[in-house]
């Protein structure tokens, strides 16, 4: 393949590629958004109750060991084709880093700070929202960042269940193996995913800066 071919490919496919990239970003964003809420909740629960902690951590680590191909396929009978099974599978993969970092982050909050807060008459809900969570936040966010990196890659397989995203480009290439365009499709999809991953990472660097309290930066 001459390099010119790939350039030509990009030139004529810019629009569909961009649409697929947007679909990819949206799929990842929705999944991470859901995983953040569910993962934080599970993390807080695991932190608060010593009995549920091993169960929650074991289940979320087991989820990560299920082969992605299988997980997507397993979701089809339950949720059909398209975005829903892709989102569900990605949320399950994203859980472990978020849950684990939430537990670690909450455990790393200085007990004396919490004792002082209690002694000053700060109620339990306010103590969580104003003291515990902001102090654990940088660690939680680091977990979300790892989850995002994992999920951006795995999301490509979402195309297998008719999900949106750059995976479609890769599968198009795989289906047309042997044709002169096959490599272009695979390359286009893969590079697109790398760019999306880098963009997400850049966003997390900014997010970290703007959501971490100045005193603990």
């Amino acid at each position: 393949m001459k390099p010119m071919d790939f350039y030509e490919y990009l030139k004529y496919n810019a629009e569909p590629l961009f649409d697929e990239a947007v679909g990819h970003v949206r799929l990842v964003a929705i999944s991470i958004g859901i995983a953040l809420v569910v993962g934080c909740a599970l993390g807080v629960l695991a932190h608060r109750s010593a009995r549920t902690r091993p169960v929650i951590l074991a289940v979320s680590s087991t989820l990560l060991t299920i082969p992605s191909l299988a997980l997507f396929a397993l979701a089809i009978p339950l949720l059909g084709l398209g975005t829903p099974p892709a989102v569900v599978a990605l949320v399950l993969y994203a859980l472990l880093p978020i849950v684990r970092n939430t537990v670690v982050g909450l455990a790393s909050v200085d007990q004396n700070v919490l004792r002082a807060a209690r002694g000053m008459g700060i109620g339990s809900w306010r103590r969580f929202a104003r003291i515990e969570l902001p102090l654990a936040w940088p660690v939680v966010l680091a977990g979300v960042r790892v989850s995002t990196q994992i999920v951006v890659g795995i999301a490509a397989i979402g195309a297998l269940v008719n999900g949106p995203g750059l995976g479609n480009e890769i599968f198009r290439g795989l289906r047309s193996l042997g044709s002169p365009f096959a490599l272009n499709f695979v390359l286009g999809g893969t590079l697109g995913i790398v760019v999306v991953a880098l963009l997400f990472d850049a966003m997390f660097i900014l997010l970290r800066r703007f959501t971490t309290a100045r005193g603990i930066r």
């Binding site: 200085d110 700070v113 004792r115 002082a116 807060a117 000053m120 008459g121 102090l135 100045r214 005193g215």
Partner: peptide, 23 residues
């Protein structure tokens, strides 16, 4: 009410426990 009570009582501990993310 314990929270209301504690707001009437100043409390200082050895490790102080200042909130690091507050000025």
């Amino acid at each position: 009410d314990p929270d209301a009570l504690r707001r009437r009582i100043g409390y200082v501990i050895q490790q102080i426990g200042l909130f690091p993310h507050f000025t």
